[in-house]
Design a binder for these strands. Structure first.
Ligand SMILES: [Zn+2]
Ligand SMILES: [Zn+2]
Ligand SMILES: [Zn+2]
Ligand SMILES: [Zn+2]
Lengths: 144, 144
DNA sequence: GAAAATATGAGACACAATATCAGTAAGTCC
DNA sequence: GGACTTACTGATATTGTGTCTCATATTTTC
């Protein structure tokens, strides 16, 4: 196993859930695996993966999302960005200019979640927290 | 001023920002004001406000959003929900079944934001935190 | 009231994403 | 391998949310 633990085998993730490991799915998974650092949009993925229908790309992306190996970030404006998940449970920073995505874990956030659980009427089934930022390279580019 | 402090005058909010207070905008603002408790979708608002074009409803909604008197919540699946803002700065709970929206304030969340500001490279321009819940009425309905 | 600025709305458009469904490819059992 | 069952694929149509256009209408200012 030469792969870093954070970069799980996307293909295996599909197989483990009882999905067939087909050619198109392999191609999508490979393309996602290549985008390790940056986030990407579903459409950019469609453009990148050759010989594969748009519907299949979207469907595979959804499977990977369910399997927890990619994350989906709603953007305040425009298409959501996807990203290969690196950490088990985490939250995100997104640059509102270039879409670069970062992950972080913060125990304080999870503490908030637990304490809110007592105050909120109803059952908490999920939570999300995002920081919208202007990343350093975008900031530098803006000055020029 | 018989209005509750949390329920700001939507019309005044538009006027304060230098926008003309026109008939269509009044109608949209009124309709939004009526939806105090629940969230709503942009399309449902279009259907509700008579004698007003869809484009104008969307435009007015955007103005109210900029003015900070309504909030927009991306849903994990489907159309974003809008809601009349009650608190100055706040976060949301959303029922994933019926879409009911609640607001809450938590100083801990804001403390997280400040502490993350030091750790994150780049300028934080916004943040969001949401709890996805199954509300008590949906839970009760499910048992039946 | 005339002129300038702004707002409106019908309809076209853009875009993301899903639904349809005939055709194809995997897995299964013999 | 061959017959069968089940799952997957992808071209296309459709939906849904939101924006753009631009001719017309309304406000505001003078
Ligand atoms: Zn992530
Ligand atoms: Zn968390
Ligand atoms: Zn709100
Ligand atoms: Zn509910």
């Amino acid at each position: 196993m030469t792969l870093a633990p954070a970069r799980r085998d996307l293909q295996a993730a599909l197989q483990d859930r009882g999905y067939r490991l087909t050619g198109p799915r392999k191609r999508v998974a490979e393309a996602v695996g290549r985008k390790q650092e940056d986030g990407f949009t579903a459409e950019s993925l469609c453009a990148e993966v050759q010989d594969t229908g748009r519907a299949t790309v979207y469907r595979t992306l959804k499977l990977l999302l369910e399997a927890g190996v990619v994350c989906k970030l709603p953007m305040p404006d425009g298409a959501p960005r996807y990203m290969l998940a690196q950490l088990e449970h985490h939250h995100h920073t997104v640059c509102v200019r270039c879409g670069a995505v970062g992950e972080f874990r913060d125990t304080t956030v999870e503490r908030v979640v637990r304490s809110m659980g007592k105050e909120i009427t109803g059952e908490i089934v999920g939570h999300r927290m995002e920081f919208y930022i202007i990343c350093t390279s975008c900031k530098a580019a803006r000055k020029a």
